[in-house]
Design a binder for these strands. Structure first.
Length: 645
RNA sequence: GCCGCGGUAGCUCAGGGGUAGAGCACGUCAUUGGUAAUGACGGGGCCGGCGGUUCAAUUCCGCCCCGCGGCACCA
């Protein structure tokens, strides 16, 4: 007898053993049909796997969140089977589920093409129609290695061969003779998968994620419970595409890029206005938070980079300038590098006279223009560039000040993100890596301080074990945008190493020289990337305070021209970014054009307004007009356009 | 850097071994209007670059460059 306890507390008894499927059938035919998995004592099991001991079991149906992951994983297997049926000789490797679907990595001499997708999808649907049974089998490791070798599956054989000896592993048999090593669980048969899937992309991927390994061909797909969900997802992708900052950047005339300056941005007047708003806002916040803004050199001799350790570690990704002069030490041409970071330069300023413990914590900020020679394939619009500006700052403090400084920083960061409309913030905490500098005691102290401060700031965090920088633990701040995508922007890193390497010190209360700790921190990360995120966050419809053009004054007839110019001048005097549209066009045409350019406010002026000294305000996205006297309008708009503080 | 796909007018894209196409944008003229497209006419192209095949290449082939999607990288 085996006694199964269900989530409602009821107990059902069976002779000998029972499978999840049988259990579901015993409860009702509807449940039996909807069931895809069982949760046995917290573990996900196949429906067909016999349960032999008394235990707690819940049945997972197709609409549960866990089911979606299962469907996607199964879909990856069906893809693999379809590909092998269509393209014999193709080797299978791995195929997990992903956030919106799945992928499978294949090895095949000939490249796949997206033109093959139709045929593969057709074959996949055929496999679903065949409703092949999916059977879990437990194999001996060596038998599995032998099997995959015999099948010519060298990648799979390599992987299985590295599993611990003597350990049983699970093989899933899909149909009569298609096998894959897999932890499972899986659906009982391919028919349960349904057909709400679609192959999306083709890409290269390295075997085991290592660039020195052979490259595999990865096929990406998306998979959902129903056709309706699939369609909704595809629509959402189209939405995201419409917000693409590269597309909006062109349409709204914000910036462009070109070959001659790959990875660097040409900011156009509109884009630069946007940039300047964000910069002015940040400057105001940093000033208020007690930061001292500085500006340090772009080009710095290699000597400093050697001292900081960058020359050793990052020489390949630094832009080097050689000059026609001999370096006295190297007997070689003198070399300077465009700074890839600001920290070594900030230490130089620190060393020029911040000598007392009374000066600490010292918060040194710079909108630091940096250059890194990023790999060609990594470049991506504003998001990954070679020339960028960090909202960088370094806080020089004592170890005792780490907690309070972190806490103050977290509050500032939260408040800044909120002003940009990001309310959902997550933190990743990365602790000591294998290879590190500094003593264990110092690490203990730093890690404890960081955790403590994060908790005090009320931010939820996840652990990222072993992912800290070699010089100290770090926090990474991730924000979620309007359409649910996550972006890592802010960071705070504790550094014991650089002050040492560059010999920074202060005089403490005891009269002795001490090393300061450096906290590297950024809120936006880089202006370029953050602006890219903002463009997508707002889909180009920026809040009034940062909008490139805040008001367009548009005339209805030529008779209102003088008045329109007067209105625009007054708006400019009130500190607004204003344009006029005096063209000989119909007001419909003008309204449409400025609306499409995403100008937040259109002031429409015709004969009536000129006569009465009023303006008709039309807000972006709205249909109503608001008629105000010129004085009222100026006051109101100037107030609305104030940046948050 | 690696894999796959692309590159035709300012933008979006069609075409295809023999004078290069559309829509939008742009310009000129007419129209002076009341809140998301007034009409007519017009100018625009080394069909990414270099080589090859061919009587003839934007079209076919090779190499390179750039873009896009991933992978790897991201102090």
């Amino acid at each position: 007898m085996v006694a199964i306890t269900l989530p409602d507390g009821s107990v059902r008894e069976f002779d000998g053993s029972v499978t999840g499927q049988q259990l579901a059938e015993s409860i009702g035919p509807g449940l039996a049909k909807a069931a895809v998995l069982v949760n046995v004592n917290g573990e996900e099991w196949d429906l067909t796997r016999p349960i032999t001991t008394d235990t707690e079991v819940s049945i997972i149906t197709r609409d549960a969140p866990e089911a979606l992951e299962l469907l996607r994983h199964d879909c990856a297997h069906v893809l693999a089977q379809a590909v092998q049926e269509l393209f014999p000789g193709t080797q299978i490797t791995f195929g997990p589920s992903t956030e919106n679907g799945f992928y499978y990595d294949f090895h095949r001499e000939e490249p796949f093409s997206t033109d093959d997708f139709d045929a593969i999808e057709k074959k996949m649907k055929e496999i679903v129609d065949r409703d092949d049974a999916i059977v879990r089998e437990v194999w001996d490791r060596d038998d599995a290695v032998a099997y995959f070798k015999e099948q010519g599956e060298s990648f799979k054989a390599e992987w299985v061969g590295e599993l611990p000896e003597g350990e049983d592993l699970t093989i899933y048999r899909q149909g009569d003779n298609w096998l894959d090593l897999c932890r499972g669980p899986h659906l009982p048969s391919t028919g349960k998968l349904g057909k709400a899937f679609k192959l999306m992309k083709l890409a290269g991927a390295y075997w085991r994620g290592d660039a020195s390994n052979p490259q595999l061909q990865r096929i990406y797909g998306t998979c959902w419970r129903t056709e309706k969900e699939l369609k909704a997802y595809l629509t959402q992708l189209e939405e995201a595409e419409k917000r693409d900052h590269r597309k909006l950047g062109r349409e709204m005339d914000l910036f462009h890029m070109q070959e001659e300056a790959m990875g660097s941005i040409f900011w156009h007047p509109k884009g630069w206005a946007l940039y300047r708003s964000v910069e002015a806002y940040m400057r105001k916040r940093l000033d208020a938070a007690g930061y001292h803004e500085v500006k340090t050199p772009q080009l710095v001799d290699r000597k400093l980079w050697e001292a900081s350790g960058h020359w050793d570690k990052f020489r390949e990704s630094m832009f080097i300038a050689e000059v026609d002069e001999i370096d006295e030490r190297e007997q070689d041409r003198k070399m300077l590098a465009l700074k890839p970071m600001n920290c070594p330069c900030h230490v130089q300023i620190f060393k020029q006279g911040i000598t007392s413990y009374r000066d600490l914590p010292y918060r040194m900020a710079e909108f630091g223009s940096c250059h890194r020679y990023e790999p060609h394939g990594a470049l991506h619009g504003l998001m990954r560039v070679r020339g960028f500006t960090q909202d960088d700052a370094h806080i020089f403090c004592t170890e005792d000040q780490i907690v309070s400084e972190t806490e103050i920083f977290c509050d500032l960061l939260k408040s800044v993100y909120k002003d940009f409309g990001f309310e959902e913030i997550m933190v990743k905490f990365s602790d000591r890596p294998e290879k590190r500098a500094g003593t264990d005691e110092t690490w203990d102290k730093a890690e404890k301080a960081l955790i403590e401060a994060t908790e005090a700031a009320g931010l939820p965090y996840t652990l990222n074990p072993g992912e800290g920088a070699f010089y100290g633990p770090k926090l990474e701040f991730v924000l979620r945008d309007a359409i649910g995508r996550d972006w890592q922007c802010g960071t705070l890193q504790v550094d014991f190493v650089l002050p040492e390497r560059l010999d920074a010190h202060f005089v403490a209360e005891d009269g002795d020289k001490h090393r300061p700790v450096m906290l590297h921190r950024a809120i936006l990360g880089s202006f370029e990337r953050f602006l890219g995120i903002l463009i997508e966050q707002f889909a180009g419809k920026f809040p009034l305070w940062m909008s490139p053009t805040q008001v367009t004054v548009a005339t209805i007839t030529d008779a209102a021209q003088d008045y329109a110019v007067e209105v625009a001048d007054l708006l400019k005097k009130a500190g607004l970014r204003v344009e006029t549209d005096l063209r000989n066009e119909k007001i419909n045409y003008k309204v449409r054009e400025h609306s499409m350019k995403k100008v937040p406010l259109i002031f429409v002026v015709g004969g009536r307004e000129a006569e009465e000294r009023t303006v008709a305000i039309r807000r972006l996205g709205g249909k109503a007009q608001e008629i105000l006297s010129l004085d009222e309008a100026l006051k109101k708009v100037a107030e609305e356009a104030k940046m948050p503080s």
